[in-house]
């Protein structure tokens, strides 16, 4: 394949990769953000310790995180078919991606929220803050820079997984690299897809890091 032909494959594959990554990150946070906060709040040092809940959720998160992504991808295909109607393509890949990413996101969120100074939480309690107010007015705003950094790390990890999904029937850069690059031994295609991927990771990481830094009022 000529170089220009290879390049003509990029726009659609790039779009699919971005689409998969952004959608997965979004849904992973829809589940992972509350889950991470529950893990922090119910921790034995949290504002509302609940040993049973904390241990159960922690175990579920650890269980899901310990399954290698490819195996999970194949294993949940029936679920994917049930939800999306097919197990092939970019949209279908989002299901296993979310299942794999939300426990990771939950741990990232947990980590960020735990960085919030214990004294500040206590001060809020002394002012009569309810647990809900502590979450919405203290934990989330105070952890925001760290959460944004975490989101960047999550998104780049998800992008990597999405490429893996692409190799096995998903869409995006991974699929092109697999179908044209690997199956047809066209390493130029593989190389171009890798370059685009690297570029994409830079964009995600940089915007997260920058977002975290610009919103952080601790740095002046």
């Amino acid at each position: 394949m000529s170089f220009s032909q290879v390049l003509s494959l990029v726009p659609e594959a790039l779009w699919e990769s971005i689409y998969m990554t952004v959608a997965t990150t979004f849904f992973a946070y829809v589940i992972g953000l509350p889950l991470g906060l529950v893990l922090v709040v119910t921790d034995k040092d949290g504002v509302h310790p609940m040993r049973g809940v904390n241990m159960t959720l922690g175990a579920v998160v650890n269980f899901l995180r310990s399954i290698p992504f490819l195996m999970l991808f194949l294993f949940v295909q029936p679920v994917t078919r049930f939800i999306v109607g097919t197990s092939a393509g970019a949209v279908a890949a989002i299901v296993p991606l979310v299942i794999s990413a939300f426990p990771f996101v939950a741990r990232m969120v947990e980590q960020s929220a735990k960085e919030v100074d214990r004294g500040v939480i206590e001060a809020s309690q002394s002012m009569g803050a309810s647990n809900w107010q502590i979450i919405t007015k203290v934990l989330l705003p105070e952890a925001k820079p760290s959460l944004l950094n975490g989101a960047a790390v999550s998104a780049t990890t998800i992008l990597g997984y999405s490429a893996m999904a692409g190799c096995f029937g998903g869409g995006g850069l991974g699929a092109v690299a697999m179908n044209y690059g690997y199956q047809r031994y066209d390493f130029l295609v593989m190389f171009v897809m890798i370059v685009v991927m690297v570029f994409l990771v830079q964009v995600f990481q940089e915007s997260g890091t920058r977002g975290g830094r610009l919103t952080d009022k601790r740095i002046r």
Binding site: D117, V120, M127, G128, E142, K217
Partner: peptide, 25 residues
Amino acid sequence: GKALREARRSIGMIFQGFDLLMQRD
């Protein structure tokens, strides 16, 4: 619960480490 939180509002407290919200002016 709520009654305690209400009562705490009539007791101000300051700390050694100030414990201000770092992301608020």
